[in-house]
Amino acid sequence: MTQMNVKTDDEILSENSMTASSPVTQEAPRPTFVTRGVDVFYGDKQALFGIDLDVQASGVTALIGPSGCGKSTFLRCMNRMNDTIDGCRISGQILLDGEDIYDDQVDVVHLRARVGIVFQKPNPFPKSIYDNVAYGPRIHGITSSKSELDDLVKHSLEKAGLWGEVADRLDEPGTGLSGGQQQRLCIARAIAVQPTVILMDEPCSALDPIATARIEDLMGELREQFTIVIVTHSMQQAARVSQRTAFFHLGELVEVGATADIFSNPVEQRTQDYITGRFG
């Protein structure tokens, strides 16, 4: 499935330093994800064309662009969710902490435990709230005792800002919560596995403004501990929550940079047009 580009580490590192030359934050943290020349095909149709993108550790990176531009596809490549789609082929390199995630040696289970994902539509399992959060730790065997698991569930729900609302009804089905609560439950479920990266695929598009605001606040808190990559069709949201922004158009990565730069002072004309609402 993966065509490995033969490149030495030195080359990659030198490329890294080139891309990172536009300073984002003062300390310029080491990138978590490094992607080089990523092409994605659905059957005969090419969806992504040679994406080179670095994702900085501990911060929010927003992927923006008009619908159908490939930003969700790219996101799903980052924890190999595209594996489940028939006829999807990927070439190029996606490195997580220097390791190619499409390498044969990489177990996709292990990868996804490290890179969690939250989907567009809240999708809690038809189980109790507790079981939803405990699902990940249970399958991975992360906790060794019931009390440890209880603690982990509580901790995760607290982090997702949901504990106060559901503490007394952990046995009720997760599907009975409101949309915003369901989405935070899904975030808690992802956190419980202790990933380093959380991918979010338009996490607020199915929610009302108040629930959206809560999730956005949550992202602000979570970025201290996790690397967050968010796909959003809302430029305002990208501006509010992210530190870095990448603009996709027609399967290409047009521009990437500090969020403030992208919105105030884009380099590319296409970015300018999109930001100002001429298309998309």
Partner: peptide, 23 residues
């Protein structure tokens, strides 16, 4: 989306089937 949720947490296919899909 149920399956995606489970895969996204790192479950194997059989775990997803036995613990999410079948229930």
């Amino acid at each position: 989306s149920m399956r995606d949720g489970s895969y996204g947490l790192g479950a194997t296919q059989s775990e997803t089937i036995l613990r999410v899909v079948l229930p």
